[in-house]
Design a binder for these strands. Structure first.
Lengths: 204, 204
DNA sequence: CGGCGATTTGAATTACATCAATCTAGGTGG
DNA sequence: CCACCTAGATTGATGTAATTCAAATCGCCG
């Protein structure tokens, strides 16, 4: 079921997945939910035209699941990851349990993102993405944010071309909204833009 | 909680909603799920820029719910509707119960749509929409399909401009893929296009 | 240090949004 | 029953932003 992953002692239920390795595949049987202990996982599907669409990125503390009966998405380790099987599949299914909560959260999140991104241009989408990422990874607004994923991952997440991601970054940088340190570190200076700021609540 | 709707005798739990009337509003408290007995309901949100985004259309037999704790979307009657409260909120929450199933289905559906529409041009999106609609309303491929919703509703569903919907319809018509009878009846002649055909399984 | 993939940059094309005008259908009232 | 009236739908013209193809540069890892 779980491919290309090393299991620690069977008792701990921990699973390691190396960067770039699949955790489960779209169309396969559903898995007990995992909780991510460390690392970043992408949840993606492939559309009929063969293009990849990243549904979401999941981080430390998030619950990883994609379908109760069969998997509607593939999960791939963006960085080296440590996963833990969710304690009890039945418990997870209870109202208030982690699976229903995770499903509800993911639905909300996908719908919200879909709605918010639909009518924004590329730089605004990218600013949205940075705020989203900062919030999900527990960074304060204005703090340095790590970008563990590739430009293509970001592009497939926002459903735009990688070249457009590149240009949008430059645009934000030229506007003075963004500062870059290498390819995988970004700092969002205080965004004046009132819109396109998803629940810009600092998470301490 | 339920606005602008007439209730039949309290015992039946039936609710009528006239065309264009709201059933519940985004941001309000969550409602017990409804089952649609007749008519068409739009589930929509308003993005920060004030633009409407139609998350989905629901039809006879579908379960209507948007959020376990509070409503993340508004429900509006596209046509005159008859709704029935879901039998038991607790039952609905059980694994296999209608609420979890509906939530899972909606998540799947939204993700699938998001993935499939992301990279299609307007005529392909519209063809997708007609197939989707035919399937959802139990029409055979090639049969006449009713379009209860306005062009703007379709536009907000596909996240394109109403004018683009209009032009895309004309394009499909000129290609010989679509035949129109009035504003609200369409027939999709056999689509050769291999792609953009979502689970084109005939529902008898 | 060298090689290779990822990223960035450039130029040309295309598709969509927008604004504005016209047309149509459905509903209303005389 | 018919003429009007209005909101919705269509059509047209234009600007713009994103994709695409192509080339150059950068960064990482062996």
């Amino acid at each position: 079921m779980v491919h290309e992953c090393r299991h620690d002692s069977a008792s701990t239920g921990r699973v390691r997945a190396a960067k770039g390795r699949p955790i489960f595949e779209q169309g396969g049987p559903a898995h007990p939910a995992f909780v991510i202990e460390a690392g970043c996982v992408s949840l993606s599907t492939t559309d009929p035209g063969g293009r990849r669409v990243v549904v979401t990125f999941l981080f430390s503390g998030d619950t990883l699941c994609a379908g109760v009966h069969d998997s509607w998405a593939s999960a791939v380790a963006v960085t080296d990851c440590i996963l833990r099987r969710a304690p009890d599949a039945q418990a997870a299914l209870r109202p208030g349990g982690s699976l229903l909560a995770a499903s509800d959260d993911l639905l909300r999140e996908v719908v919200t993102r879909f709605a918010q991104l639909a009518h924004l241009d590329a730089p605004d989408q990218l600013r949205w993405f940075f705020h989203w990422l900062a919030r999900r990874t527990g960074r304060l607004a204005g703090q340095m944010v790590e970008l563990p994923m590739s430009r293509r991952d970001i592009a497939d997440f926002l459903a735009i071309a990688p070249e457009t991601v590149s240009r949008a970054m430059r645009t934000l940088e030229e506007r003075g909204e963004l500062r870059r340190k290498g390819l995988h570190l970004c700092q969002l200076t205080f965004g004046r833009r009132r819109d396109a700021c998803p629940d810009a609540v600092a998470v301490p």
